[in-house]
Amino acid sequence: MDEVLPQKMSLWLKCLISVSILMAVWCLCFLVASLTFIGKKRFKVLTVNNGHAVYLQYGNIFSPNEVLDSGKRRNIVIPVNRCFDVHVDNRIVSAQTLHGIALQRLYASGKYSEESLITKIQQLLSRVGYENVSRKDKPEGRCRRYPPGTVAVLPGNENVYYFFWALSTFDANMTASTTMQEFTIAVQKLIEACYEKSAGFPVVMPLVGTGLSRTKTDQQDVLKYLVNAFRLNRAEISCDIHIVVWEDIKEEIAISNI
């Protein structure tokens, strides 16, 4: 600093200016780092021995950009009711839910009709037990109710496979809900399905219960539970797992400190 500051300036003033400059540089670096951290949308929360990882991120599960290589197959988890209903009418299946959005995409592709999709699901689940629900207990829709966590893998278009994941149960008033016990069982079965049916390609799953699936548990707690479930089953992870929180609610749910 001697070459820059006047020689007649007192030593204490030179020190004060030097410290001020260092503080300004530190604050600038801190600001840049903070903005970078705040703008970050994907966090790796778990790495397993085979090189795969579990990520938390903000985004849209239907976007190909949610995975590291958008040109390859990706598996999208879609929470559905345990009867695997296929009719989008905003009563049985709402067009605004992930279930409804996925069904509309499948129908729009021309790959399935409602009838052919029912046939395909029944073929995929032919070895899975189910109960026949009476019209008194479920007035509308399909009556085959499968166990919580049952997964049917449906090929879509453009390298997309849908993991229809049985989660919610309709009551006699056609209100869907999921108990914590059912949710726990369903998560474990989903982890097993990812291991057995992902073919090593990434799995993209939503944070359930954020207005697109119905659970009564706080979403931050659900997020922690999901991460811990994968952590406990790390030996069963055979692909990258991307847990996605909708971009629209990122102000409500933190993913950086899980």
Rank of each mutant, 00 (worst) to 15 (best):
D171P: 06
T178L: 05
G129K: 10
F183Y: 15
Y162A: 02
P155K: 09
E140A: 13
S134V: 08
Y146F: 15
N173H: 13
T179I: 00
V128K: 12
P139S: 10
V151M: 05
L154K: 07
Q123H: 12
V151T: 04
F170T: 02
R135S: 11
W165N: 01
P147Y: 06
F164A: 05
T150D: 04
E140C: 08
S168I: 00
V128M: 06
Y162F: 15
E140K: 13
M180G: 06
Q123G: 11
T178E: 04
A176D: 02
E140I: 07
F183W: 13
T178I: 09
M180N: 11
K136F: 14
G129C: 07
E158K: 11
G141T: 02
A176H: 01
P139N: 10
R145A: 05
S177Q: 09
R144A: 07
P139W: 08
E182S: 15
E182G: 05
R127N: 14
R145V: 08
F170A: 08
M180R: 11
R135D: 11
S134I: 10
K138H: 05
W165D: 00
V151S: 03
T169E: 13
E182F: 03
L124C: 08
F163M: 14
E158T: 05
V151A: 03
V153Q: 06
T150Q: 06
G156V: 04
Q181N: 14
N132E: 15
N159H: 15
G129M: 04
P155H: 05
T150I: 09
V128E: 14
G156W: 08
L125A: 02
Q122T: 14
P147Q: 09
C143I: 13
V160N: 10
T179V: 06
A166V: 06
V160P: 08
N132W: 10
K120W: 09
N159V: 05
N157H: 06
F163N: 00
L167V: 10
A176P: 02
R145Q: 15
S134Q: 10
S177V: 01
F164I: 01
S126Q: 13
F183S: 03
N132Y: 12
S126K: 15
N132H: 12
E140G: 03
K138N: 06
R142D: 07
R142W: 07
A166M: 08
K136Y: 14
R142G: 06
N159L: 09
S177P: 02
K120H: 12
Q123V: 09
S126Y: 10
T179C: 04
E158Q: 12
E182H: 09
A176M: 11
V153E: 07
R144M: 12
C143D: 14
T175N: 11
F164T: 02
F163C: 03
G149S: 09
T150E: 03
D137K: 14
Y161M: 12
Y130A: 11
K138M: 10
N159R: 13
D171V: 05
N132P: 00
G129E: 12
T178D: 06
R145W: 09
G149F: 07
P139G: 04
Q122S: 14
A176Y: 00
S168V: 04
I121W: 04
M180L: 11
E182N: 15
R142E: 13
R142V: 02
G141P: 05
N173C: 02
E131Q: 13
T175P: 01
S126L: 02
Q122E: 15
G129S: 15
F163G: 01
I121F: 00
